[in-house]
């Protein structure tokens, strides 16, 4: 069974979205051991014993993290189908690259397809979240 199917239909982690099942669209991106990876090109058995975070777990229940807040503020989501995957990528990316410039953000984002937003607002949100997180820490 694909890992994304397992997370969704066995564990009911429905934030894991499936847009292509061939590793291109990025909707199924999750964090495994803190690293942003596709869950559609892995099998559930492969993740045996792994530490997995989906978009449900990016912030304590009832709260939004800095990135989620910035997404809301900058209207960085429309249908929101691509969003949980992007949020997972951003979580890993900003840990690795706390001071990204626009080019690096766009390159990181190129592993996701968003059909609604045209990306600009997502880029703005990520850059602002990065700045806020730097201020906060």
């Amino acid at each position: 069974m694909l890992l994304c199917d397992f997370l969704r239909h066995e564990l009911h982690a429905f934030a894991v979205h499936v847009g292509c099942e061939h590793g291109v669209c990025g909707a199924c991106t999750i964090l495994i051991e803190g690293r942003a990876v596709r869950s559609c090109t892995q099998y559930a058995a492969q993740a045996d014993g792994a530490d997995i975070v989906t978009a449900e777990g990016l912030a304590p229940p009832g709260t939004l993290n800095e990135v989620q807040r910035a997404f809301m503020k900058h209207h960085a989501l429309q249908c929101g189908f691509c969003t949980p995957g992007i949020l997972c990528s951003v979580a890993h990316f900003l840990r690795q690259t706390p001071e990204p410039d626009e080019r690096r953000v766009r390159e990181m984002l190129s592993g996701h397809i968003c059909r609604c937003t045209g990306y600009t607002s997502i880029v703005t949100a990520i850059l602002e979240a990065a700045a806020m997180m730097r201020k906060g820490s």
């Binding site: 429905f14 934030a15 499936v18 978009a55 990016l58 939004l64 989620q68 809301m72 929101g80 189908f81």
Partner: peptide, 17 residues
Amino acid sequence: GRKEDEALLTGQARFID
């Protein structure tokens, strides 16, 4: 700000599948 966003950002929104 959009009413829709919080559910979508936290994975609570429900789609057909």
